[in-house]
């Protein structure tokens, strides 16, 4: 199972624009691709983890991505509220990127307000996700479309929803389809799984 730190690791590979405060004409040949050359004052695109390192050494200023803008985010919030489904977010890692870029000593103006705007959108989406997960569980069925749900939101939803789905399936599945002895799930869900198989076998008796 992925945890939030691992998803942040993926978010750090996304690109961001920086304004370097130093000049280095040499291109840096990273394994993931080339970055640079850096000229003081001229914007340049690098992965977020490079931007964070340079920023820590006071070597650059991070420029907010286009979508990290209060007006745009407020529009997005309205759109999200109005829609029954999830709307497409400007970035697959919008929450992760916002979290990485809007740290305490951020270069980006109005960091507080931006953080609040992002959090509002997140809250609306997560509430929507919980509500639809509830409908999905009640309604039955084993599959559902979740277009435009981002990885971090899925991570938030995953432990409870998947476990509930698995348990529900085992309770309702024909008994010959599985054998309680031979099936196990890795990690934390094994406890609830043993519970579910125990209860289903009791029922069958």
């Amino acid at each position: 199972m992925m945890n939030t730190a691992e998803i942040e690791f993926l978010a750090e590979q996304e690109e961001v624009t920086i304004i370097p405060k130093f000049t280095d004409q040499r291109v840096v040949h990273l394994i993931a691709g080339d970055i640079g050359p850096f000229r003081a004052g001229i914007p340049c695109v690098v992965p977020i983890w490079v931007a964070k390192t340079l920023r820590k050494k006071q070597k650059c200023k991070i420029v907010a991505p286009e979508w990290l803008d209060i007006d745009l985010l407020e529009l997005k919030l309205e759109e999200e509220k109005a829609s029954r489904f999830f709307t497409q977010m400007p970035s697959e890692h919008y929450m992760g990127i916002a979290h990485l870029l809007l740290s305490d000593d951020s270069d980006i103006e109005h960091a507080d307000r931006l953080r609040l705007a992002i959090k509002n959108i997140w809250d609306v989406r997560v509430a929507k996700a919980r509500a639809s997960a509830d409908t999905f569980l009640r309604g039955g069925g084993r599959h559902a479309g979740i277009d435009y749900l981002t990885q971090l939101e899925i991570c938030n939803l995953r432990p409870l929803l998947l476990d509930a789905l698995d348990t529900k399936y085992r309770l309702s599945a024909p008994l010959e389809n599985f054998s309680a002895l031979n099936t196990s799930v890795a990690g934390s869900s094994s406890l609830s799984q043993s519970f579910s198989s125990a209860s289903s076998s009791r029922r069958s008796q």
Binding site: R142, I146, L149, I154, R158, L161, L162, L165, D166, Y169, R170, A173, N177, F178, N182, T183, S184, V185, A186, Q193
Partner: peptide
């Protein structure tokens, strides 16, 4: 112990 292939995924 066999992996449970009926488990749900995203």
């Amino acid at each position: 112990i066999a992996p449970d292939l009926e488990t749900h995924v995203f």
